[in-house]
C-alpha cells in the first residue's frame, strides 16, 4: 500500500501534518478507522488515534490539545447527522470550524449534501482507495493551511 500512495506533503513550517482519527457514538467496529489510520501513517502523516465510543466533546478537546490539521471520524451506526452536527457545533464554539472534518463509513448517498452543508469537507465511503484518500485529503490540507489564520 505504501508504494501506491504519494509522498506525504508537509506543512509550510516543515512539520508533518497531524490528523485526528476518532470513532464517535456507540458502534464499536473500528476496522475502517484503523485502516485509514494505517493508510495515513504509511503516507507519512502523524495520526492521533483516539479509539472507539468517543463523545463529540472528547474529540474536540483532543483535536484542540493536539493542534491537529484535520479531523477524520468513522461512522457506521446511522447516527451521523446528529453526531456531525454536534461536532461542527462544538468546533465552531471553540473557534476551530475552519479545521477540515472528513467522514468515513456507511453514509447514504442522499445524506452527503446535508453533511457537507454542516461543514464536512469530504465523505469517503467503502471502497475508497488509499491513493484517493491521501490525494483528496492532501488537497483539503493544503487549502486549509493557506487559509488558516496566522
Amino acid at each position: 500500500m505504501s508504494s501506491d500512495t504519494p509522498a506525504s506533503p508537509r506543512r509550510p513550517d516543515g512539520g508533518r501534518f497531524r490528523i485526528l482519527i476518532a470513532k464517535p457514538g456507540l458502534d464499536g467496529h473500528d476496522r475502517g478507522a484503523k485502516y485509514v489510520a494505517n493508510v495515513l501513517r504509511d503516507a507519512g502523516f502523524e495520526v492521533i488515534y483516539t479509539g472507539i465510543r468517543r463523545t463529540p466533546e472528547q474529540i474536540v478537546r483532543a483535536a484542540l490539545q493536539e493542534d491537529v490539521d484535520a479531523i477524520g471520524i468513522s461512522l457506521l451506526s446511522g447516527a451521523h447527522m446528529t453526531l456531525v452536527a454536534r461536532l461542527t457545533g462544538l468546533l465552531a464554539e471553540h473557534g476551530a470550524d475552519h479545521l477540515p472534518l472528513f467522514v468515513g463509513g456507511v453514509i447514504p448517498e442522499s445524506d452527503i449534501p446535508e453533511l457537507k452543508a454542516l461543514g464536512v469537507c469530504e465523505v469517503y465511503g467503502p471502497g475508497t482507495s488509499a491513493r484517493t484518500l491521501v490525494e483528496s485529503l492532501t488537497v483539503h490540507l493544503e487549502k486549509h493551511v493557506h487559509e488558516r489564520p496566522a
Binding site: 505504501s2 506525504s8 494505517n38 503516507a43 488515534y49 479509539g51 468517543r54 466533546e57 478537546r61
Partner: peptide
C-alpha cells in the same frame, strides 16, 4: 516510522476518560 516518517500516536486511547477534564492536557508527539 523510519521508512515513511509517518506515525500512529495512540497513547491517548488509554487516557480518554480524562479528555473532558479541564485540568488535564494531553499532547502526543512522534
Amino acid at each position: 516510522s523510519p521508512f515513511t516518517g509517518g506515525a500512529i500516536l495512540a497513547d491517548r486511547v488509554r487516557m480518554m476518560r480524562h479528555a473532558e477534564d479541564p485540568a488535564i492536557f494531553v499532547r502526543s508527539m512522534a
